[in-house]
Design a protein around this nucleic acid. Structure first.
Lengths: 215, 215
DNA sequence: ATTACTAAAAGACGAGTAA
DNA sequence: TTTACTCGTCTTTTAGTAA
C-alpha cells in the first residue's frame, strides 16, 4: 500500500472533494516522472484507496472510504507514538461462538509455524471470539498489529496474510489475530493462546471478559 | 528517508528508551528478510534518524532528536488531513536582511527552471527574509512544502533539493522556499515572488508582515 | 548467536510512444 | 493535450555466507 502517495493526495485535498490533478502535476508533487505518477495513481485505484474519473485533460481523484481508513490508521499510529501514554489498553466484550473458521486456519502449518516463531507459543487449535463493546471497538481501531503473519500458497489455494498483537487475558498470554481482508468485522476479535481458554478460564458464551493489550 | 521503518521502531518504543531488537526480530515486524532489516537499520543510522549500539546478541536502538522531528512532521501532516480546518494559516514576522545566499541560489538556472514550471512564475532574483514570531514558528513546523524542488549537479558542485509552499503577501502570490538541509533555521522563512517585494510593498527591515499560506 | 558483505533475482523507474 | 503501455536500465531485495 502506497501510503505516501495517498497522504499526498489527501494533503492536496482529495479527501474532501474530487481533486483535479493530472499525472504530470502529481509527478511534480511527488518528484517523479509522469509515468511513475500515472502508475501510482492506477495502483491506488486498483487497491480501492482512491477512485478516479479520467478526463481528456486530467483526472478527478477522490479518496475512498477505504483510503480514508488507511490514513486514519496512520494518524492513530503517530498519535500513539506521541501520546506518552504508558498505560496498557484494555478491550472488553462478551464471549461468542465463531464460525469455526479460526480453528481451521490456525491449524494450518503455514500459519502455525509463524505463530510458534513470532509469538513464542504453539496455539491451541481454536480461537476465542469476543464481541467488543462500543468503547472497545473504537479502541481496537487504534491498535496496529505489529506482528506480521505472511500469506502462503499450498497445492490447492492461496492463504492471505494478517497481523497479530499480544494480549493478556487473566493470567494467560495470547494474541489477537486479524486477517488482512477487506470486510473483516471490526466488532469481533479472535484470540489464540497456548491452551483452550474456555476451559482454562471457565468461560462460556456471554461471559464478559477483559483483554489487556501488551507490548 | 525510510519513515515506515522509523515509525515501526517508534511504535516498538525506541523513542522512549533504547530498544533491544535484533535484525531478525525487526525483519519479522517488517515482513522482510534479515538482510533488508539490517540494511534499513544501517541506513536510518547513516541518516542520523536512529543511533545504535551493536551487541553480540542484537542491538540497542534509540531514535535521535532528528528522527523524532521527522515523525512529528508526519504526525502534523496526518493531523492536517483530519483537522477539517479550511481556514488558511497565516505566518507573521518581521522583515530582515538575509545573507544574500538566496539571491545566488534562485538565480541558478537549475532551480529557476523548476520555479517557472512548478510555481508558475519566474522569481525576482532575491528573497524576502522574514523572522517569524514565536507563534508562527510553531505554525510553520506544521506546514509541509508540497512542491518539491530537485537538486542538480553542474560541472563544479552539487546543489541540494528543497521544497516550497505557496503564499500570498498582500496582493502578491509567491512561495516560501526551504532547502532540505539539516541545520536550516526554523525561525526564518525566505519568500520568492515574481517581483521585488520590498519595492512593490514598500517594506524594509523591521516591517511587520503577514504571509498567508495558500493551497 | 549476531551483523552485514557480495552477487544474483526481483521490482521500480523513466524514455519513448500509442491511443 | 491527456493516460498508460513496452522495454531497457537502475534500484532494491534476498540468498548465501564471512566475520
Amino acid at each position: 500500500m502506497d501510503i505516501i502517495s495517498l497522504k499526498k493526495l489527501a494533503l492536496l485535498g482529495a479527501h474532501n472533494k474530487p481533486l483535479e490533478l493530472s499525472s504530470v502535476e502529481f509527478a511534480s508533487y511527488m518528484d517523479s516522472s509522469q509515468q511513475t505518477a500515472s502508475r501510482k495513481l492506477k495502483a491506488l485505484e486498483d487497491e480501492n484507496l482512491i477512485s478516479r474519473q479520467i478526463l481528456s485533460d486530467g483526472q478527478l481523484i477522490s479518496i475512498t472510504k477505504n483510503g480514508l481508513l488507511a490514513l486514519q490508521k496512520e494518524l492513530y499510529d503517530y498519535q500513539e507514538i506521541f501520546s506518552g501514554n504508558g498505560s496498557n489498553k484494555i478491550l472488553s466484550g462478551k464471549v461468542i461462538t465463531g464460525l469455526g473458521e479460526g480453528q481451521y486456519y490456525i491449524s494450518l502449518e503455514g500459519y502455525r509455524k509463524q505463530f510458534r516463531e513470532k509469538l513464542g507459543f504453539d496455539p491451541y487449535p481454536g480461537t476465542l471470539n469476543i464481541k467488543l463493546d462500543t468503547q472497545s471497538i473504537e479502541l481496537r481501531k487504534r491498535i496496529t498489529g505489529h506482528i506480521r503473519i505472511s500469506g502462503f500458497t499450498d497445492e490447492n489455494r492461496t492463504f492471505g496474510k494478517g497481523s497479530c498483537f499480544n494480549v493478556r487475558i487473566s493470567d494467560i498470554e495470547g494474541a489477537v489475530i486479524t486477517p488482512e481482508r477487506t470486510h473483516y468485522p471490526e466488532d469481533i476479535i479472535e484470540i489464540i493462546a497456548p491452551m483452550n481458554l474456555r476451559n482454562h478460564l471457565d468461560i462460556r458464551d456471554g461471559s464478559v471478559v477483559q483483554v489487556e493489550v501488551i507490548k
